[in-house]
């Protein structure tokens, strides 16, 4: 893993890294990835991937309206709001 890749992944992750952090992460992530390489010694050609250990599939429910938390409660943790809207910086230049 190199600096270019770190910057690409940081951008995908919406995380800003300092130059020093980039250096540390290149080293640490490379170490971890080379450890993970050991999976390639296994032949998994005919093995199905596992997502849910109990083989549950999609769970559906009746489309019945139910009460939920109140509108006031939805906003108690918002940093910025106007009336019943969350306020964010300008999206379109």
């Amino acid at each position: 893993m190199d600096k270019k890749e770190i910057e690409y992944i940081a951008n995908l992750s919406r995380i800003e890294l300092t130059e020093a952090e980039k250096e540390v992460f290149i080293h640490q992530l490379s170490n971890i990835l080379s450890y993970i390489e050991k999976l390639n010694t296994l032949d998994t050609e005919n093995i199905k991937p596992l997502a849910h250990t109990m083989n549950a599939s999609n769970v559906f429910r009746e489309d019945k309206p139910e009460s939920s938390i109140s509108r006031e409660d939805v906003f108690i943790n918002a940093t910025a709001k106007i009336d019943t809207f969350f306020k964010v910086p300008k999206v379109i230049e």
Partner: peptide
């Protein structure tokens, strides 16, 4: 941050099969 970075790397275009899919198959084993 490290884990988010690792996770996004494993899911990113071109690496999904090599990492996430491979790991999910070994999980079956």
């Amino acid at each position: 941050k490290r884990r988010i970075m690792l996770g996004n790397y494993a899911l990113s275009s071109g690496y999904y099969d090599a990492y996430y899919l491979k790991a999910s198959k070994v999980r079956t084993l």
